[in-house]
Design a protein around this nucleic acid. Structure first.
Length: 155
DNA sequence: GCCAACGTTGGC
DNA sequence: GCCAACGTTGGC
């Protein structure tokens, strides 16, 4: 039974096209405990992901991805002093931050903008609609996932 | 660039 | 353990 997620990325940093080009990527750099716990405790290989562009001219879901790792692994950037995500309080023996692998799945025929998400009554309750909701990895209900896919021209 | 909302830090 | 101060996110 797959679970459904929305994962935010700033397109200037890592866009959906970048994921397409790369095929898959370690979702590193997450430094929020709630998001970390979701990756560590809840995300499973095969889970479906809405890939969302944030902090850009037109925020919205670009397409689909999947969780590709069986379990979360230590985030290598936490050990790298030259990384923006370096965490001096983390050790290899007791890593504080973990991440999952995320693989490209398929693009939407058309992106589903946040504006449309907010307009759609069937999507009421989606976390991403909530003002001030900063969680970068959000659980999504199956019905909401399916609806977003349909709005994006899939299935 | 503004600023609301939220998470984290640290003094007490 | 409280909470004020601070930093960050992210829509607009």
């Amino acid at each position: 039974m797959p679970c459904y997620w929305l994962m935010k990325s700033e397109p200037d940093t890592f866009s959906f096209d970048a994921l397409k080009a790369k095929g898959s990527t370690l979702w590193d750099g997450v430094r929020n405990y709630q998001a970390r716990n979701l990756m560590r405790d809840e995300m499973r290989k095969g889970d479906r992901v809405l890939f969302y562009h944030s902090s850009c001219a037109e925020p919205g879901v670009q397409g689909l991805a999947r969780v590709a790792s069986a379990q979360a692994v230590p985030d290598p950037t936490q050990f790298d002093p030259s990384s923006d995500y370096y965490d001096p309080k983390s050790t290899e023996a007791a890593p504080r931050w973990v991440c999952v692998e995320v693989a490209y799945d398929r693009p939407f025929k058309q992106g589903v903008t946040l504006a449309r998400i907010k307009e759609c009554d069937a999507l009421e309750g989606m976390l991403v609609r909530k003002r001030g909701q900063r969680l970068s990895i959000q659980p999504v209900e199956k019905a909401h996932f399916d609806r977003i896919c349909k709005m994006g021209g899939l299935f």
